[in-house]
Amino acid sequence: MLNFSDPIWELIARFAINTGAMSLLVFGMYYRRYRDRELATTASMFNIFAFAVLTILSSVQFSLAAGFGLFAILALFSLRSEQIEKIEIAYFFGAIAIAVICSVLGTGLVFVLCIVSFVIAAAWALDHPNMMKSAHGAKVTLDAIDPDILSDTEKTRRLLCKRLGVDVMTFQIIELNYVNDMARINIFYRN
């Protein structure tokens, strides 16, 4: 019989919980719904790396300030990287959170398994396609700027609906370039 009080077996059990939960979150949910191989690979690798680093750090004397410093360094990566969507950030953070939950020594394995199960269940329910019917998003570049684009948002919304052939629920103007007569807009629409 396995003795989970032995540090090696406890580490193996924690790694198995971490890897299983991360795989369910990233590949079972995110990848199946969004088919983004790059983010799925990145989030899963980040999870494994974070688990390894945090396991080492939790077994030695490590201050809370140093932990916040570690996450500040991680935040700098996002500032230097290409912009990712909100849902991608949520899944990416979920993969890191699972690594943190599983790697902290001093918590019982049953407790860790319960918390990770709650995280997975919440992610599944909150991002389930039937839970909230969401709008689709798109980035649009227009080759002409309407004179009322900023002053009459309802007119702009109607023009976007007509031009794109979809029900534009809302939009966000990213850039107006009057030199080239070009507008970059993020739209949220329903078919």
Score class of each variant (00 low, 15 high):
126 L>T: 11
31 Y>A: 03
61 Q>F: 08
27 F>K: 08
123 A>Y: 12
53 V>F: 01
76 L>S: 10
127 D>E: 02
80 R>G: 12
30 Y>L: 06
114 C>M: 07
51 F>L: 08
64 L>Q: 10
53 V>I: 14
92 F>I: 09
66 A>R: 05
126 L>D: 04
37 R>F: 04
64 L>T: 15
112 V>G: 04
24 L>I: 10
52 A>W: 13
117 S>N: 01
92 F>P: 14
53 V>H: 07
116 V>W: 05
131 M>E: 08
119 V>E: 02
49 F>N: 06
60 V>G: 03
67 G>I: 12
32 R>T: 05
50 A>T: 15
88 E>N: 12
91 Y>M: 09
55 T>V: 06
73 I>Y: 07
72 A>K: 05
53 V>K: 05
75 A>G: 13
120 I>V: 15
23 S>I: 07
46 F>Y: 09
113 L>R: 06
93 F>N: 14
55 T>R: 05
45 M>A: 05
58 S>E: 07
53 V>D: 04
109 L>F: 04
37 R>S: 11
133 K>E: 11
111 F>A: 03
57 L>P: 14
109 L>P: 03
119 V>L: 12
132 M>P: 07
53 V>L: 12
83 Q>D: 10
125 A>S: 11
20 G>V: 14
118 F>I: 12
60 V>W: 09
70 L>F: 15
120 I>Y: 08
34 Y>E: 06
93 F>V: 13
44 S>T: 07
55 T>C: 01
96 I>E: 04
71 F>G: 13
24 L>D: 02
